[in-house]
Design a protein around this nucleic acid. Sequence first.
RNA 1: GGCGCCGUAGCCAAGUGGCUAAGGCAGCGGAUUGCAAAUCCGCCAUCCCCGGUUCGAAUCCGGGCGGCGCCUCCA
Length: 527
Amino acid sequence: MTIQIYNTLTRNKEPLEPVHPGRIGIYLCGPTVYKEAHIGHMVGPVIFDCIKRYLTYSGFEVTWIVNITDVDDKLIAQSQERGISMNQVATEMTMDYCANLLALGVDQITHLPKATENMDEIIQFIQDLIEKRFAYAVDGDVFFDVAQDSQYGKLSNRKAEDQQGEGGGAAAKKRSSGDFALWKAAKQNEPSWESPWGPGRPGWHIECSAMSRRILGQTFDIHGGGLDLMFPHHENEIAQSECCHGQPMAKYWVHNGLLRAGEAGKIGGRADRQQGEPQCDEEESAQKMSRSKGAGGLRSQIARFGGDRIRFCLLRTHYRSTIVFSDEGIAEAGTALDKFYTFFERYERITSTSFYLTGTPTDPRRLIRRRAAGDFDPAGDGLLIELKNLRDSYLAKMDDDFNTGAAVSDLFQMLSVLNKFIDDQKLEDSSHDSSAMASFLRGCETLRELSAILGLFLKPPQVVGGGSGDDDRVLDDVMRVMIDLRTAAREKKDFATADQIRDRLGELGIVLEDRKGETGWKRQAES
RNA sequence: GGCGCCGUAGCCAAGUGGCUAAGGCAGCGGAUUGCAAAUCCGCCAUCCCCGGUUCGAAUCCGGGCGGCGCCUCCA
């Protein structure tokens, strides 16, 4: 019943015990907003969105921070390249980032603090470190003195010497190569802030130490980020914060696996490997998203496939493992999710209400029933006993380090159970038993409850294809005509004509479904 | 070179000491259907290789082989 959480710091699962009972603070390293977000940037936010939902569901009051790095070398480079201010670049890309988050259903973030809006806190933090002799200023730069930190490297199991940090001119100023910049003196024409060491800007790591302290305190519960940030970024955050405060920065360090762009075919060997054919092509190998061409296509991908589908692709795998993100994977997720969408249509025909409104008294964002509230007594009802077992199984998996990949299977099983119940009880006929209907409705609430934890099915999928509402209304009218004509043909046993209509529509991506007494239609999912 | 991860069915993917190894996609057989679609039922893996620990291992240890990440301000 206690939630277990994997802690990178100890390389073990540990029971989640908050610093302050009943409350949990989460800090997730967010993006540097210098260009459009890509799908790889969404992995952390999506999994942490689920984690927050689940913790809230489990009774905790959760504060979740995602920082926005809006001052940085790459931002400066972009602004110079585009001839606009750094602030303008940052504003544009922050909006892009947030738009993508919302499209994927990530709406649980409490604060999105920006580095540039926390300069006082950052400067104060650096001053504290200098006073405590963990940092030193040289010609307008300030460096962290790694040699003073006996604990350095405990997160990633590395030594200070491994940290290269700033090269070039900065290297000469450092006491040792492992030292890293807390403050960088401004060069010509660079945006800068006044400080005790002269005009400059913060180094990469310090904003996280400063902002997490301001909002969450000196020691907070969960610090997250991609696996690639473990070293040097998180290691340096720990060094700064723990040297400054003399207490742990975060209790649990949670790292999500990275995404790779999947390519069909054999994976080629490493370039630096000597043996074997030297001719295998790098083209073939799956590659990490961050530097690949996958960037930029995110918004169109979400528009094309729908946020739930992308989200499902990310949640069907355990968050700590690598996700291979491929076209085939998206297509497969589409087929899998269609089972749910088909069920929701069925639900609507039976109940005349939208599944998306089930158990949602108010704002869909708040659609998190408390765990205790969702519990129920099956009271000997066969359907409810099955669903209760699946619910228990699901919750046990989520309790075990947020195992969304495993939990998903219970959702599919619930779907089968509910579909079977509809078939067996003939709920689609008018003559069904009212107590069966009551069980059904209760069962659907559980499906709603559990899928909401993953942030799935919170709203209907947008109509794929992007027609305006008017177009859709016209299309629906036209489809009525087609269906009427076909129905007439079928009644005359003119199946050749009926099948021709269905086949031709099929070529257009429209699927007809003959049910008792009526024929429905829908568009085939985009793949 | 240093640190770390992974190898489960045609594909994706849970499971990390003990019931018949989840679930999804694809496929096959059946129910249903005028035929389909949707839905339901059934079938479909002994877990990269070798050795060890154990009453018992996909799960622990050792050794191979193979894939991947970080060590470059990339989530």
